[in-house]
């Protein structure tokens, strides 16, 4: 897990991402196939969320499996503010972000005391507590029945009939996170994070305040995750604790980032595109037949990919490409 991105400063470094982003934008313009447009919007959303996770999990090395807590808080905050107080989800989104920054303090505190699997387990517990609270606070949240947001498309309501505005918003979200990650990759902040990730004690010995670094990285990561939560709530129009706070979702953010490549700007984007496409294809192909078949395939692929490319696609694909070329050149 070295920081490749810092090596090449040129624009070519960003070529793959630029092409992916341009492709994402082209789709709603080029086709009126709703499913394809929808797939792109979800890919972008997941890419953004994986990128947000990457800041804490990849750059700072804090392997959180509780990011659904932030996602869910973001989704619920804007939705509740809209439904109970008529507040625009745009404002609600920022409120959710602010709330989550406060909540992330707990995770950051845990991060300063715990490492590795211990930290991961505490984050799971944290998200579970959030899930239970949302499920029990019936009068306010309607519990596990979830909240349905009426479809009333206006800009102020953060709802649109056309897919293009959705795509543009999701794309801005991803591009912003990509840019942030690229910046982190070559900033002093990023080098400090890398130092801390590789050896916390050594970093401290060099005078780096690793506690503060963790707080900042986790807060930033949580804030961006909450924004994605609001987008999700608005786009799908339905939130329930069983999904938005679920371990499955936390795992998904981390998984896409790990498959793509932790601690890189491009990794989460690639991971999200690949995993989302894979899920869609498998589910479409086998989902209706014998229950569970496509998930068996999915699980096997997961095991194989993390084994074959433990550093993710960003490192693994070029290596494989090189080997392939070497073999064919010879």
């Amino acid at each position: 897990m070295t920081i490749h991105a810092s090596a090449g400063h040129g624009t070519r470094e960003h070529l793959p991402a630029a092409l992916l982003f341009a492709g994402a934008l082209a789709i709603p313009l080029a086709t009126d196939n709703l499913f394809l447009q929808d797939a792109v919007i979800f890919m972008l959303l997941w890419a953004g969320l994986a990128g947000a996770w990457n800041i804490a999990g990849g750059f700072a090395g804090q392997l959180s499996l509780g990011h659904a807590a932030f996602f869910g808080l973001g989704a619920y905050t804007s939705t509740l503010l809209k439904l109970h107080y008529g507040l625009s989800p745009w404002v609600g989104m920022l409120c959710g972000g602010a709330l989550v920054v406060v909540a992330s303090g707990f995770i950051a505190f845990a991060a300063t005391r715990l490492r590795g699997p211990y930290f991961a387990l505490v984050t799971i517990a944290f998200a579970t507590v959030m899930q239970i609270v949302a499920a029990r606070w019936y009068e306010f949240t309607r519990g596990n029945e979830g909240l349905s947001i009426p479809f009333d498309p206006t800009l102020a309501n953060f709802m649109f009939v056309d897919k293009l505005p959705w795509t543009v918003i999701a794309l801005s979200y991803v591009v912003a996170i990509y840019a942030l990650a690229s910046w982190i990759g070559r900033s002093r902040f990023g080098f400090q994070l890398a130092g801390m990730r590789e050896d916390d004690n050594a970093a401290q010995a060099l005078g780096i305040d690793t506690r503060w670094l963790k707080v900042v990285a986790i807060a930033l990561s949580a804030f961006l995750t909450a924004l994605g939560g609001t987008f999700y709530a608005q786009y799908v129009g339905f939130v329930d604790p069983g999904y938005v706070f679920s371990l499955d979702l936390s795992v998904k953010f981390a998984l896409m980032c790990i498959i793509g490549g932790m601690g890189t700007a491009l990794g989460p984007v690639l991971g999200a595109v690949l995993i989302t496409a894979l899920e869609m294809v498998l589910r479409a192909k086998w989902g209706g037949e014998r229950s569970g078949l496509y998930l068996i395939v999915y699980g096997v692929l997961l095991i194989v990919v993390v084994r074959v490319m433990p550093e993710g696609l960003v490192a693994g694909v070029p290596q494989a490409w090189k080997r392939w070329r070497a073999r064919h050149a010879a």
């Binding site: 092409l19 792109v40 690949l274 294809v281 694909v317 070029p318 070329r325």
Partner: peptide, 17 residues
Amino acid sequence: SRSHGFLRAGAIAAAIA
């Protein structure tokens, strides 16, 4: 070569989609 690799990966993902 790395850049090519990404393009290939992108192309594969696009093909899947």
